[in-house]
């Protein structure tokens, strides 16, 4: 039996279009920790994603993922603030290979182009340490709309 995808093709296209991505985690005392992510890849089954997290990110983020695996991935398009959030559980992680790094760089370039489009040229183009990345594979447990407004937080689709 084929499982119903959590993320359909339309949403997958949006999530992989070069967005501002942030990862939320927490420790055993439920203290949150987060970081910026470079890119995201939605797997064909629509039930798993791979999040590319800069290896330079705070050690607490990786430590939290290692100990409890709970993760929230928030994504927003700077041009119109359309946003979504994926909740899930980290399955495992690895150093991104060259092909994955190329995918991440393409998405990052798209994100920077969007920033440029809203009048933030030059920001983060050179000084942010978003490469190399750790690829974090996540089993998706829920997807939410996060576009600002009255129904932000409603489950998708």
């Amino acid at each position: 039996m084929t499982s119903v995808p959590m993320i359909d093709e339309i949403l997958a296209e949006f999530l992989q279009s070069g967005l501002g991505i942030h990862v939320g985690t927490r420790n055993e005392q439920l203290l949150p920790a987060g970081c910026r992510a470079t890119a995201i890849k939605v797997e064909d089954d629509g039930r798993h994603v791979v999040v590319f997290v800069p290896k330079s990110a705070a050690p607490a983020v990786f430590e939290n993922l290692r100990t409890n695996g709970r993760i929230a991935v928030s994504m927003a398009r700077p041009a119109d603030d359309r946003a979504a959030q994926v909740k899930g559980l980290m399955m495992f992680s690895w150093d991104a290979n060259p092909d994955e790094e190329a995918l991440a760089r393409a998405q990052w370039a798209g994100f920077l182009a969007q920033l440029d489009g809203i009048g933030l040229p030059g920001i983060a183009t050179s000084s942010w340490r978003v490469f190399p990345c750790r690829a974090v594979r996540v089993k998706v447990t829920a997807v939410f709309n996060q576009t600002p407004g009255p129904d932000a937080g409603a489950a998708l689709p």
Binding site: G20, H22, V23, G24, T25, R26, L30, L31, P32, A33, G34, N68, R70, I71, A72, V73, S74, A76, D81, A83, Q85, K87, L120, I123, Q146, P148
Partner: peptide
């Protein structure tokens, strides 16, 4: 408010949340 801020929280059941801040 030039660059959006982020708010990281955690529910009592241990589910983390990452949200953009106005």
């Amino acid at each position: 408010g030039i660059i959006p801020a982020m708010l990281y929280t955690c529910a009592a059941d241990g589910t983390p949340n990452a949200a953009f801040l106005s």
